[in-house]
Simulated assay, not measured.
Amino acid sequence: MVYPEPWCMPRLFTAGIAAFYEGYYANKGVKIIKGTVAVGFTSNSNGEVKEVQLKDGRVLEADIVVVGVGGRPLTTLFKGQVEEEKGGIKTDAFFKTSVANVYAVGDVATFPLKLYNEIRRVEHVDHARKSAEQAVKAIKGSEEGKAVDVYDYLPYFYSRSFDLSWQFYGDNVGDTVLFGDNDPASAKPKFGSYWIKDGKIVGAFLEGGSPDENKAIAKVARVQPPVSDLDALTKEGLSFASKI
């Protein structure tokens, strides 16, 4: 695995969280190369890839290459026709655009995120599904003359690989604490992090949680309970969430 950042998934993971997954993958025989990118490929006469050339000069033997380059919302079709903001199509809390009877949902929508009182664009399948549901409710409500609650979304991300499964809720800003067993060699690792901003927990991450434990960290991220002692929070760990 080759990636340019100092650790894996730095947009979400702290260095402490990333260290677990990097160690876990290494124990599975995966070699990780950080701080560089692929700049070229060597192929044989059949067009089959044989080598990957890295920016730092290294050359890796390869039989197959999987490239993840990300993506951007494709809004060029609507340029000059709908209002845009923060790289997406601006909508209200019902996903109506600036054009009557036109709605935008999912990754392309920039919408008011009630929980944080700001305009955001969210790239995730969970939001894509729920924003589409909200738009349909709004359309049906309009047709039937019924009021619909504004979209009140709690940011949510998750992943599953090997026998691992993590979930994250809320916002990953501010100070962080790491709790639990994050030893990559553990038989059943279970650990997590809280993000604390302005004296309140605004985000929560958990690896290896049960359904009830994942619900508990989701509730913490939404309720945003106050905390004053980060050391005490580290010691309490998951039990703090279970009390909210």
Rank of each mutant, 00 (worst) to 15 (best):
N214C: 06
K28E: 15
G47L: 10
S98V: 10
K137A: 14
P73F: 01
W7I: 05
F111Q: 09
T91R: 05
S210L: 08
F78P: 02
D198Q: 10
Y103V: 11
V59R: 13
R129M: 13
A218S: 10
R160K: 15
F111E: 09
E207D: 09
R58V: 06
V105H: 02
I32T: 15
T176H: 10
I119E: 11
Y158G: 01
A138M: 08
G40K: 11
G209F: 07
K197N: 12
G170H: 02
D92E: 10
D149L: 09
K188P: 01
Q81R: 15
L12W: 08
M9D: 04
I201Y: 08
P155N: 08
V122K: 01
E118C: 08
A232S: 14
S186Q: 04
G208V: 05
K146V: 14
Y24Q: 05
F168Y: 14
E123H: 07
K130I: 06
A18F: 08
S159N: 15
D212Y: 00
A104S: 14
V59S: 14
S228T: 15
A93M: 02
V39F: 09
L77T: 07
Y156H: 15
D63K: 12
V122S: 06
Q81P: 04
V136Q: 02
T76L: 07
Y194H: 01
R222D: 05
G203W: 02
K114T: 13
I217M: 02
A138N: 11
K197C: 00
E143Q: 14
S98R: 06
V2G: 12
S242Y: 00
G106S: 07
F162M: 13
T176G: 04
F168V: 05
Y25T: 04
D183R: 08
G203P: 00
R120M: 12
A241C: 09
K146L: 11
A135W: 08
D198T: 04
K79F: 04
G16N: 12
N27I: 01
I244E: 02
K130D: 14
F191Q: 05
R160G: 08
I32K: 05
W7E: 09
V52H: 04
Q167N: 10
L54D: 07
G209N: 05
F162G: 01
K197S: 15
K28C: 12
T75S: 10
S159W: 07
G35W: 06
N44M: 02
F205C: 01
E48G: 03
K243P: 11
A204I: 04
E5D: 14
F157V: 14
S193M: 03
K79A: 15
G29R: 02
T176M: 02
A216D: 08
L230F: 07
K243I: 03
T14F: 09
G209R: 00
T176S: 13
R222V: 04
V2L: 12
I33P: 09
E5H: 14
L206T: 00
V223F: 02
R121M: 11
F168N: 01
S186W: 05
Y169K: 06
G16Y: 06
L206R: 03
W166Y: 15
E118I: 02
F94G: 08
F95A: 06
G192F: 07
G237C: 08
G174N: 11
R72L: 13
G57F: 07
K200L: 08
E118F: 01
R72F: 10
A93V: 11
A104D: 10
K215R: 13
V173L: 12
V223I: 13
F78Y: 13
E213R: 00
G209W: 00
L233A: 05
P4A: 12
R121F: 09
